[in-house]
Design a protein around this nucleic acid. Structure first.
Lengths: 235, 235
DNA sequence: CGTTTCATGACAGTACGATGACATTACCGT
DNA sequence: ACGGTAATGTCATCGTACTGTCATGAAACG
């Protein structure tokens, strides 16, 4: 079970050594890194799985970085995808045009790794791709992702791994209804084959774990629609 | 170890004028500086007293900087020692090779002293050599980095080197959960190939070493997530 | 009242971590 | 330089918590 909550960065660059260098530094910083050698490959990979951020070289074989960026901006699905352009110093005045085409930032080669990392983090933060490690709260429940602890009324609860992720997911989107398919995609993973009914079972396990005697149920069942983290009380 | 409170930097460089220049600037920044003229001397000095960081020239008489770096990485005691490569050739290929051998960063000559200082500080911060020489405490455990001593309830414990670094790492981030990969990166080093399962074994050795009879276990296992320094029984 | 949808308990298979053993390597004093 | 001891990384095994699925009963709808 390969947990991929790391931000996913796609490098589009044809110079292999630079790719190696970037990959090394970015992975060291805790990012998941993929790379594409030309524009076509880049667009394909983006279509397959949307990255959290794209590092896009200005000069590319067959299709320029500008064109790739335009294509990215053309599709609704990737319209807000953060893109950082990599340009050679001589092309710096072109940077303006790069931004015109929709890049979110640019950086001139050669650049220091710290500068690049800083910009990446800034963009990811702005885009909200970095999962917050702040405590999550709802009603009388609190979940701390850092220490992996869940409490209700101060009393610590023990949850299995799946129940924990399930609760975390609901806490990140309180009061919203999710179908079983939604939940499977978000909590289990996109390409995992699991029966939708299995969600029921884990919802039940979650309820059993978090609902002490005399406490109200925070998980609401919406018939024919799905589940939500909400107070049932509303009539 | 490092008896003085100043971070200790070892310069490995054969060009005397550059050594003088570096020494002058680094000492002005509050570092303690030693130098070695070739790879053999460097390794000897490192064996005598582990520096907090090594500035390593790429081109050295008798033994190349790459080889020195490999030697440093081969011993467990210096596996996580921060190394910055100084290279005259700014080509990225060389940089990549330098990083492949386990250097943490590189900088191309000629470089500005500010840039170098910035990288040194960044590495030291990440390595955690700078922030605390102070004793670390958690529950009834105390660890003194300076004297390399660990106590529980006043009773002195004997830890192996790896267990010591492991405990030190956890003490610096109490109650936080770390995956095996996190632990490997932080305690073993970034580009070292070690099976994630090995962490289990060392966690076990750490537990055996610090948990006396009748004492509670301070190391918490979080299934499918990792380990944390925390009290299992939480209220 | 019948149909649809969900809750629940049971269960077999599995994944995960704990543990002991072991071969190899590093370290230290002689 | 050498030999003994400590330390390290890997593996196989074992017990247990967890997982996914189903059968059945309850509840909600028309």
């Amino acid at each position: 079970m390969n947990d991929q909550n790391k931000p996913y960065i796609l490098i589009v660059e044809d110079e292999a050594p630079l790719v190696t260098l970037l990959r090394y530094n970015l992975e060291k910083q805790g990012f998941r890194v993929e790379d594409a050698g030309d524009g076509g490959e880049a667009l394909t990979r983006i279509a397959e799985a949307t990255p959290d951020l794209v590092l896009l070289d200005w000069m590319l074989p067959t299709m320029s970085g500008i064109e790739v960026c335009r294509q990215i901006r053309r599709r609704p699905a990737t319209r807000t995808l953060p893109v950082i352009m990599l340009t050679a110093r001589a092309e710096e005045q072109d940077a303006v045009r790069g931004l015109d085409t929709g890049a979110d930032d640019y950086i001139a080669k050669p650049f220091s790794t710290e500068a690049l990392i800083a910009r990446i983090r800034a963009l990811l933060r702005r885009a909200g791709s970095v999962p917050t490690k702040a405590k999550l709260n709802f009603h009388d429940i609190s979940l701390d992702p850092a220490s992996h602890r869940v409490q209700r009324n101060g009393r610590t609860l023990h949850l299995g791994p799946t129940e924990f992720r399930l609760l975390e997911f609901f806490l990140r989107h309180p009061k919203r209804v999710f179908s079983r398919e939604d939940v499977l995609n978000a909590v289990w993973g996109r390409d995992i084959h699991v029966e939708p009914r299995t969600v029921d079972v884990h919802i039940r396990r979650l309820r059993k774990a978090i609902n002490g005697p005399g406490e109200i149920d925070i998980v609401r069942t919406i018939r024919a629609a799905g589940y939500a983290l909400d107070l049932e009380a509303a009539l």
